[in-house]
């Protein structure tokens, strides 16, 4: 499905701010894998997702998705196959446009934009049903501007938009981090439900170790641009937060100090 071979990325090469964000990363995902990624700040988690999505070019290595080499493809081009949800709830939706218009744009992922009407009558009815499944009461507000929604509602909508066309790959970059605990767990549940029901292949970055253990079938820990721990299946299910902390200390040689990762 997704295959990353020997990908590296260094920011500000040759300056005092040089930062090796990814060091020779290799990773292979099977169809239907739901992988959670944890690691401290600056470990390269978000960079990895951004490289896959094509937000910046990689220095070297090859990324293939579904057998196609996408290493040099533009971000918008890869987006035809990849759905994304960002940490910032404002980034995934167009605030000045209606809920319906946002969904209609997501519905046309991977298609050529034509001079046909932006939202057809038939699809309006479809949207009522898909939005109803979110359980947020948005089905009566399809013509409201997205800017009027709360962060949690916007994030749920973004998730819906990212998965509306059954993407080959779903990238979730700490998409629950900016939400309050209750909303965060709601969005996470929804994520789990959508990914499982559609059988999507997904990568989810999180700061929350508990979440990383609870959802998905595989877990990756990153440290200084490398993957230092990769566990799946039964072994992953049996993990405890304390195991992850110990793993981290073993690999990095010092204690894991980050409140955000311990909380929750």
């Amino acid at each position: 499905m997704l295959k990353i071979s020997n990908v590296s990325k260094t920011f500000n090469l040759g300056t005092v701010n040089e930062k090796k964000a990814l060091q020779n990363i290799s990773l292979q995902l099977d169809e239907g894998d739901f992988v959670t990624i944890i690691g401290g700040n600056g470990a390269g988690k978000s960079t990895l997702l951004n490289m896959i999505a094509g937000a910046y070019p990689i220095d070297c290595g090859i990324i293939t998705l579904d057998g196609h080499d996408i290493s040099l493809k533009a971000e918008y081009d890869r987006a035809k196959l990849i759905g994304r949800v960002f940490q910032d709830p404002m980034l995934g939706t167009a605030a000045e446009m209606q809920i319906m218009e946002n969904l209609a744009m997501a519905k046309r992922r991977g298609k050529r934009r034509t001079l046909k009407w932006g939202v057809t009558k038939e699809e309006k009815e479809d949207y009522v049903n898909v939005v109803k499944d979110l359980g947020l009461g948005l089905e009566d507000r399809l013509t409201s501007k997205v800017g009027l929604l709360s962060g949690g509602q916007r994030q749920a909508l973004t998730l819906l938009m990212a998965t509306l066309k059954h993407p080959q790959l779903l990238l979730l970059d700490e998409h629950t981090a900016a939400l309050d605990p209750a909303t965060s767990s709601k969005v996470l549940q929804l994520t789990d439900k959508i990914v499982t029901e559609q059988g999507l292949t997904a990568l989810m970055v999180t700061h929350n170790m508990r979440d990383a253990i609870d959802v998905g079938n595989r877990l990756i820990m990153m440290y200084e641009g490398r993957i230092i721990y990769d566990v799946k299946g039964e072994e992953k299910k049996a993990l405890q937060v304390s195991d992850l902390l110990k793993k981290f200390e073993e690999a990095s040689g010092h204690e894991f100090v980050n409140d955000r990762m311990l909380l929750g």
Binding site: A79, G83, L91, A94, A106, R113
Partner: peptide
């Protein structure tokens, strides 16, 4: 239209339009 909506969305949130 689809194309016009994409233009309006670009003025609103470029990142989102690219990610679609």
């Amino acid at each position: 239209t689809e194309l016009g909506s994409a233009i309006r969305a670009t003025g609103n949130n470029e990142q989102m339009v690219r990610s679609l």
